[in-house]
Nucleic acid binder design. Structure first.
Lengths: 207, 207
DNA sequence: TTCTATACGTACCGTACGGTAACATCGTCA
DNA sequence: TGACGATGTTACCGTACGGTACGTATAGAA
């Protein structure tokens, strides 16, 4: 956040050797490492080293490693939902086509060799304890995303949007998991066809 | 393994105070803890304490914690596949009904509050490094299970059994993930209907 | 009894972890 | 200038981790 001054000068851009605040650099470094290698597997030393800062800077911006992990998940969720909303609201008259475009985008990401699925799902697997901050953040994301899928299903005309949304959710979680489980000829190849079949089923069934 | 003697006495059954060998007790304890709390989250001290033995006993039966984790996953996979095979081969004339029974069984397990999904998928999430023993074991299980689903799809009469098998795999991995992500009114409720819709789709499509 | 093999426990090791205290440095603005 | 706030540096703490050296108890064979 840029501080205000009377003259309105861009203070942030004037910082000499500091391209970004330490907290922000830590956020980025943690995001990369947490996603690629998992939260438990990454130590705070590696996070600060990669960020080019030191440990006290981490603990000045975040109260603990767990808090940093929760922050990482919140950002991940906000961006993911924003992306979903942006694509879906780009053409509200044709939600099914927009959703198909979102799926294509997902598949493109999932095709990358270092793809690791959904960071929130992974965090929930790493932290089964429901009281853990990271687990709470992961659960919150998933609840919100489930709501979006129900909303989308309603927009597509399903009479039982909750059920279609959940069917699509199962498929998507399946993509997150299986894309990182299989290296070649991934099961994700059938995603679009399977999603279409499910949408067709739930649209023609209860009309 | 029971040692042979000239007289053929049952030496194993004659052991006085030993209800089970240390290695086996460690296996059981590790299995419970690894599944419920995750592999990384559980230390070897807790495993041996729960097993009522001590650390050296662990390292006499297993070369490392990683080896123990791989052993846990191999057993998990063998039992899971055996269960799948048993149910499917119980009535080979009606694979679809047998698969539905298998799904019902899965849903019953998944409804338990402490359900944690598939141990192999969870392990793959915990160990993204492809060279890790636990990761290798998890990948092997998933490859075999994918083959079973293709086999099942062929038995059901799909002309492209690989595609139907993969679609079902996505759904199932979705169950593993979402059953532990949501506490109430789980998305898994639509599993049977969605699976039926996918099977119908792939059976009527290419005939 | 004595020997030997197997199974097990006590006590310990080095290391890496998350986290902190104390102090130095730099840029900003009054 | 001088005060201030944010950041960086160094050194450290307590703990939990995976793993091991070494001694001990038991049971069968001779």
């Amino acid at each position: 956040m840029s501080r205000k001054t009377a003259a309105g000068k861009k203070i942030v851009a004037n910082r000499r050797h500091a391209p970004k605040r330490a907290g922000e650099r830590i956020r980025e470094s943690a995001r990369d490492l947490f996603y690629k290698r998992g939260i438990r597997a990454v130590g705070v030393d590696e996070i600060v080293t990669r960020a080019g800062v030191t440990k006290p800077s981490l603990y000045r911006s975040f109260s603990s490693k767990d808090a940093l992990a929760a922050d990482y998940l919140r950002h991940l969720g906000d961006e993911g939902l924003a992306h979903f909303d942006a694509l879906l609201s780009a053409d509200p008259t044709n939600p099914r086509a927009q959703f198909r475009a979102w799926l294509a985008d997902l598949l493109q990401n999932a095709a990358r060799p270092d793809y690791r699925g959904c960071g929130a799902t992974n965090a929930a697997v790493e932290y089964p304890d429901l009281g853990h901050p990271a687990r709470k953040a992961a659960t919150a994301i998933k609840r919100r995303f489930r709501g979006r899928l129900k909303q989308l299903s309603k927009a597509m005309g399903a009479s039982q949007p909750g059920k279609l949304g959940d069917a699509l959710l199962l498929l998507l979680e399946g993509v997150y998991a299986s894309a990182q489980l299989f290296n070649d000829n991934r099961p994700t190849r059938v995603l679009v066809e399977a999603a279409d079949a499910l949408i067709d089923h739930y649209l023609t069934r209860d009309r």
